[in-house]
Nucleic acid binder design. Structure first.
Lengths: 120, 120
DNA sequence: GGAAGTACTTTCCAAAAGGAAACTACCTTA
DNA sequence: TAAGGTAGTTTCCTTTTGGAAAGTACTTCC
């Protein structure tokens, strides 16, 4: 009889793999985690604030990624009627549920750095 | 005086953002999480096993991503001298430290599905 | 009236990512 | 000796991603 590994055939694993795909497709791209991370730290930031905070991002990407995040209800956008019109971006209650994930991401990255420079 | 949000200027945040970049660059691409997730569930899988388990992946991508993961010590590769040569891929001890992150990813994705179909 | 600040959008382009199919290579079974 | 299974590699092509720069629009300050 032929041995066949079929762990992925169980409904549990199918769901799990699908869930990972879902999450990654919502959080895809180079900047989403940075934007979310920044908005989780400091709440209510303007477009130019975010542009300054997030090192290396340009206006096109920031604008596009914010729209994506807003569409998925992770970030809120509120136009204020101030003298020069300003916009307040903030993390939503739902977006805040990503905090544990982002923390794991950061935690692992920090441990990785330490393991690379381990001997020093 | 001009109000400037400078939350990202603190060393803590710099490190945090850098850590997120590090993690995401190591785990970049469409397939890394799927491969790691599969290897965390079932240990010791052959190339063809993985090809069957991971729905949609092709040989080129699987081969390339496995090399990346091996280079970063997240996955081990052992050539067995069986009749038709086989290769055993397994998660390393270090790779297993990604389990909490992958669990968060899966957990959030499952919750997301539920929130979308919330009313039903 | 011109500079500067707000918040974007648009265009144009280069690089990276990824898929399909074919090919290599070696071994076993029928 | 042909088929089928192991484990890949290579080529060619399309799609996706993302960056730089310029443009839009409106307002306030000097």
């Amino acid at each position: 009889m032929k041995k066949k590994a079929v762990i992925n055939d169980t409904p549990v694993c199918q769901v799990r793999m699908q869930a990972i795909s879902d999450t990654m497709s919502i959080l895809s791209g180079k900047w989403k985690f940075h934007i979310l991370g920044t908005l989780i730290e400091g709440d209510k930031l303007g477009f130019m604030d975010l542009l300054r905070e997030i090192d290396g991002i340009g206006t096109k990407m920031l604008s596009k990624e914010l729209q994506d995040l807003e569409m998925n209800h992770l970030v809120s956008r509120k136009v204020m009627d101030t003298k020069p019109i300003t916009v307040e971006y903030a993390i939503t209650e739902y977006g805040a549920t990503l905090a544990p994930l982002i923390n794991e991401l950061a935690k692992w990255g920090i441990a990785y750095r330490e393991s690379v420079h381990g001997g020093e």
